[in-house]
Design a binder for these strands. Structure first.
Lengths: 117, 117
DNA sequence: CTGCATCCCCTGCGATACTG
DNA sequence: CAGTATCGCAGGGGATGCAG
């Protein structure tokens, strides 16, 4: 488990560095939606239950900065902004899938019924 | 992405539930060490660079509560306490491995040399 | 519709010190 | 050697309001 600096921040393990890209409550759910198709801000907002305006906006910005997604704004009124997953972002999909499956497994062990979608 | 209550806490996605078990800065590094063999508190402390006494103790307690590890205390002086991964804990290992590999991949993309451990 | 700023709370985590 | 308690800070994240 190496340790290193990146972008003025100290990381102790590759795990930490990985979670910098997909960690937090919302980054994985966002990437998960975008793997299927490009979505508008409002579509993401509707698709992801309980996410607040602030969190969606800030997480999208962070994902864009890290090159996980791209942002395309259209000069129309009302504004239309589309978010698309990048190749780099797609590399996270299998990881997210693994974590989700693990989550479902733990839910099952805990006796939590799969809410039907 | 279902939503449910468990243990007085609201979860929005299986991802959140998964991270409840292996999330945070230290749970994965701890489980990673224990997959090989049972370790004493002090051994873990030495093996995991930069972890503080407080965090190691608290994370061990949380992992124990979730049934990921077991704790065995020996009635000797000085005290001797050993931690062992459980079958449930072992289920997290492939997930951790996936995340670590992803972390290394991201490090490579970011131009970070593998510190030669 | 989308983005950005503000205020505020709560939690994770570090530092330190005391105990058996 | 291992555990617990206290203090304090920084950052994640919610609620709300304003702007183009």
């Amino acid at each position: 488990m190496p340790e290193f600096f990146f972008d003025h921040k100290l990381y102790y393990t590759p795990i930490e560095f990985a979670l910098e890209h997909i960690g937090g409550t919302w980054k994985m759910p966002i990437l998960w939606r975008l793997q299927q198709k490009t979505l508008r801000y409002g579509e993401l907002k509707k698709d992801i239950p309980h996410i607040t305006h602030k969190m969606l906006a800030s997480q999208l910005r962070e994902l864009e900065e890290k090159g996980m997604i791209t942002r395309e704004a259209f000069a129309v009124v009302p504004p239309r902004v589309e978010y698309t997953i990048t190749d780099k972002g797609r590399k996270a999909i299998p990881v997210i899938e693994t974590i989700m499956k693990y989550g479902y497994e733990m839910m099952k062990e805990a006796g939590i019924e799969y809410p039907k979608r």
